[in-house]
Design a protein around this nucleic acid. Sequence first.
DNA 1: AGCTCTTCCTGAAAGC
DNA 2: TGCTTTCAGGAAGAGC
Length: 292
Amino acid sequence: MPELPEVETIVRGLRTVLPGHTIIAVRLEKTDFIEDPIGVGELLPGQRVEAVDRMGKFIWLKLTPTPGAKNSDKHLNLVVHLGMTGWLGVRRQEDPVAPHTHAFFELEDGRELRYTDIRRFGQILLVGQDEMGRLTARLGREPLELAFPEFTARLAGRHARIKALLLNQSVFRGIGNIYADESLWQARIHPARLASRLSSADLKRLWNAIRRVLQQAIEDRGSSISDFVDAEGQPGEYQQRHRAYGREGKPCFRCGAKIRRDIVAGRSSYFCPRCQPAPRKRTTRASSRGRA
DNA sequence: AGCTCTTCCTGAAAGC
DNA sequence: TGCTTTCAGGAAGAGC
């Protein structure tokens, strides 16, 4: 599933082949995951891709109108979220079309940008320059651009489970289930611990772990679990370094105990029950009533 | 504020 | 063997 490293890998691939090229036509198949399919079809032809960037798990294509574009005074942005199974890449028009390809953006040179998404949990948004601020305001900080004091400040006083906060895109942007679990394993922190109960040593280990994990995963071009491939169609390598995610029942690389899987924050969470000790008391109503 | 539950969707895997 | 059920999960929204 595409998280920050996978999206970064896609973005780096697109950045080498897309800027400077102009969309001349749009073809859409299923459109239920596209915010404004009519607008996409009408406004994108004539738009040139100026730059490709990433915001958390969003791919951000900055567009510039060419003389043939409608609304040629307006700067548009094509923002794409890959959801669970999304893929965005450039192919020649004569190349075979992968199943579940729902959007085709024809370029002036005979190639086309294609969006493929089996489950259609992704999103395609057409965003005007003025609305980009509102989109970014919903998102937290980039975890790799975050100094330790800011990291601590974002978690201070939060009574939610650390796993829930790592997954919450308005706290940090780009971390998903895999990299949350891998970071917590590295930092030896149980996913169900409350953020407010973490010591500064815990937080320091977690901050370091998130940075190490994400940087290594970007270097390895992401994790390919079921079907992730980069913009060129190549799988990533980071799944070979997974220490917790998907390893239920297998020995912990650190201590040999069996990795466990529990539901924390509504998500499968893999952790070592020995290296990542559980919080002392469940904060259930029953236990607090029993003590009162 | 933050928790759980539900919804969206498909295909793989497990169950019968 | 073949059909049915379950599960996975990012994000948003409802309800508590």
